[in-house]
Design a protein around this nucleic acid. Structure first.
Lengths: 349, 349
DNA sequence: GCAATTTCTGATAACGTTATCAGAAATCTA
DNA sequence: TAGATTTCTGATAACGTTATCAGAAATTGC
């Protein structure tokens, strides 16, 4: 038995130990580990036996030092105040990415910190990551510009304005808003209120905010209906509650409300109830978004929903494919939401 | 300007390039990078200038190969079917761990896959991680046993039965259940139903299930009240809905319900409403758990809540401390929940 | 049966960093 | 001022792996 690493309680064997036990040279062991050709069956068996006997596992940093790639992908979710993070809907993003990364034999680093341009570039320069998946992409996102300029691989969940040659997977918010109107107009509603993303999102050019409004414009034209809308902060139920009151104060004729967030919808329902309306008998509420909350609300929420797990799973596959085939073309995918009819919408009486 | 790495679009400079530009030797650059003593100020300035000029960043795999540690912590959250994962409450666990890891200059790998004993050990053996944070720890958890036997560092969120010399941070479920009774008995309730974790959790000896029941026993004794309880699956609102109906069918005298999950509480409220009770005027509902949903439910949920962000932040600090000081003692922390009085409980009339 | 080819194996160098050591230069001590 | 000490720097080796090359052994071709 070769000498053990005295620093650790448990032995850490190296390729040299395996070679010694099997009575071969180090490169021969390496060849067998990497399934190279030209190895005699008898030798292979003997080496594999030694590997098994020692419980040998290659030192991953050494492999990467020689090999170049770090086989690590980072998922960057920029959060200003992580400890205040309360909206809990995005975990499927992380789980989906983690699952896909594992399957492709990559590691997934999850990053919530605010990055500076330098720390972002250093992620690549230090070989810490091979590629990144960016969440919360704005229309003019400095991360995208910087990585594009420097030729570092990345995939967006969401997208920026200039998407030439960039890979992304995005939720189709335009289609979502139009579908929301489709459903409600089908049910006979014509006076429809819309609670959309806050001005801050629009000002920082976040995709959902911008494209929801574009979808809203299309829907208004398509059905020749009047605009009734508010831009709402997404901090929680209270914001939906206040905005719905404000909207109905000005436009009491509304018979349905569309929100871009489930909690906001919960606030709408609260406000409508307080004003003496029953949901869905008197007024309908339709949410665009995601999250288990849809079932927790009374009445449960009819919603246009996306599977965030699928989205980030796909994004991660796009990333690993991009890394394995250097010259692959940019992939651009838009995902339409699914209409899940629950209890909060009903035909206009 | 030294030669560039022709493989990359962008240059990757090494310590040798810096040394050449600054006109010093490689070890001198290394010394400056690592803030070692005995470097002339003039030399230091010249080298820093070169580093800045080249945008040099150390190759992280090379550092780790030489240094031994990988400065990576993995957060293991075992999920049987990741794509089916719907309960979205645990994201603060990930965010908290990620934030703490960044601050301590560690990387956080998030793992959802089911691990085998071998893959778990190989995480350490291959130097992929220095330590792990384990979620969903059972009372007799094979991961704990294996890592303990092999002397690999880990921290539990939750805990197993034999905690001698192990570090963990756990939610104090016993105290939570007792506090729940404190609050309701204070309000005059005596006939209190309890919806607790499913039998499967109890059978696989998951801590919350076991210790909630222990807290339940204490509370029953403390207030000399009768037990009325159901073990409930936690798939969603429907489970709470059905269990509450079942419980009230048998014990119509109940005036309050305690649940161990916010969605289950939402189901309880639905069932109570359907049976003609107003919440909180006629019946009270109190949840033990976490998540923004508490505000989304109508009426909003009075609850005993934990900050999962804080919990995983602390767990990660425990891990990094353990890694930096070899012989530190095991830390064991129990966190009591905070009572947040919202709308769903009220004095018995 | 001898050259040409294929199969197999090991020496050596390299990846980019840090640790160790030794020697040179500068400073201090008496 | 000579010796001792401190400050500074560079040569060299090492971390654990993979790639390249060359040479030995086995197989093939004519």
């Amino acid at each position: 038995m070769p000498k053990r690493n005295s620093k650790a309680i448990n032995p850490r064997f190296t390729i040299a130990d395996v070679a010694e036990v099997a009575g071969v040279s180090i490169p021969t062991v390496s060849r067998i580990l990497n399934n190279k050709e030209y190895v005699a069956d008898e030798t292979r068996d003997r080496v594999n036996e030694a590997i098994k006997q020692l419980g040998y596992v290659p030192h991953i940093q050494a492999q990467r030092l020689r090999g170049g790639a770090s086989r690590t992908i980072a998922l960057h979710y920029p959060v200003e105040s992580p400890h205040l993070l309360r909206n809990v809907v995005e975990i499927p993003y992380i789980v989906g990415a983690s699952a896909a990364a594992s399957e492709q034999e990559y590691f997934l680093n999850f990053l919530v910190s605010q990055l500076t341009p330098n720390t972002l570039l250093n992620m690549y320069r230090s070989n810490q990551v091979d590629g990144m998946i960016l969440l919360q992409v704005t229309l003019d996102d400095w991360r995208v510009n910087l990585l594009r300029e420097n030729g570092y691989p990345f995939v967006m969940i969401g997208r920026c304005a200039d998407i030439a040659n960039l890979s992304f997977i995005d939720l189709n918010f335009e289609a979502a808003v139009v579908s929301a109107f489709d459903h409600l107009v089908d049910l006979g509603h014509r006076e429809i209120g819309f609670l959309t993303y806050p001005p801050s999102w629009r000002n920082s050019k976040l995709g959902p905010a911008i494209r929801s409004l574009e979808g809203y414009e299309s829907a208004l034209q398509k059905y020749n209906v009047q605009p009734y809308y508010r831009e709402v902060e997404l901090r929680g139920v209270e914001d939906g509650f206040a905005a719905t009151h404000s909207l109905l104060e000005e436009f009491p004729q509304l018979t349905a409300i569309i929100t871009t967030n489930h909690l906001i919808a919960a606030g709408s329902i609260k406000a409508l109830t307080q004003r003496g309306y029953r949901v869905p008998e008197d007024r309908s509420v339709l949410a665009i978004g995601f999250g288990e909350i849809a079932n927790g609300i009374t009445p449960s929420l009819t919603a246009l929903e996306w599977s965030l797990y699928e989205v980030s799973y796909q994004a991660t596959l796009m990333m690993t494919e991009m890394l394995s085939q250097k010259d692959s073309l940019a992939q651009q995918i838009l995902v339409a939401p699914k209409l899940l009819i629950r209890e909060s919408t009903q035909a206009k009486t």
